[in-house]
Amino acid sequence: MSKRINAIDLNVYYGDFLAVEGVNIDIEPRSVTAFIGPSGCGKTTFLRTLNRMHEVLPGARVEGQLLLDDDNIYDTAVDPVTVRSMVGMVFQRPNPFPTMSIRDNVLAGYKLNGTRLSRSQSDQVVEEALKGANLWNEVKDRLDKPGSGLSGGQQQRLCIARTIAVKPDVILMDEPCSALDPISTLAIEDLINELKDTYTVVIVTHNMQQAARVSEKTAFFNIAGTGKPGKLIEYDETTKIFSNPSKKDTENYVSGRFG
């Protein structure tokens, strides 16, 4: 169910512009890894290369190797759709499908792909996914109501439910709490703690307390200046990054003396 991620000399481009340079990182299965760093340093860009969402943008491309349990997802013969069905993603802003009910939103991964499920199968998938996202008790009586009628925090958990419903191996989260209030944030963080028992979770966050709370390992990205590529500066145990980082840049950033 859970896979190891291994990036080898990964360069990420937008057209001719090198956005992220030379990333080498080894992410353990069944763990939570946080990406931190200043805005524009390439954390989100790098995250989106992990499920080939980066190349959805015009002109975007990637060089290097990215191994998912020893399989290079950037091999020319690999279909990005296959990669994305194994590596799920939760976005910064909750984006449930507005035309669908809560139930259909959870089943979106199946329904949109035309997979037929029997009534009992789909009921089971919906219940499991919503329970897995800690949303079941709040919505079980109104599964046929539109998903866009939920609160922001509930919508984000609905998006997580939608992601885990298709049983991926890896879950990527791009600042999943930045649009949420502290209570909803806490609910998502608790959820991340449960998800790591089953999935490899990678989370981008601007909130260093959050990184310290939820992650086992932390990667610090930085950028030398505007127009320069972002780089992975340091990748280590979260406790070490926040207490005793080996690089000066990391120390400046985590202690708030940045820039």
Partner: peptide, 25 residues
Amino acid sequence: NELREASYALGVRKWRTILKVVIPT
């Protein structure tokens, strides 16, 4: 665009995304 990306991230092909997400919306 978020809806298209949400659909792609679930491993849905582009033509299915257009047919089932973009056009219904």
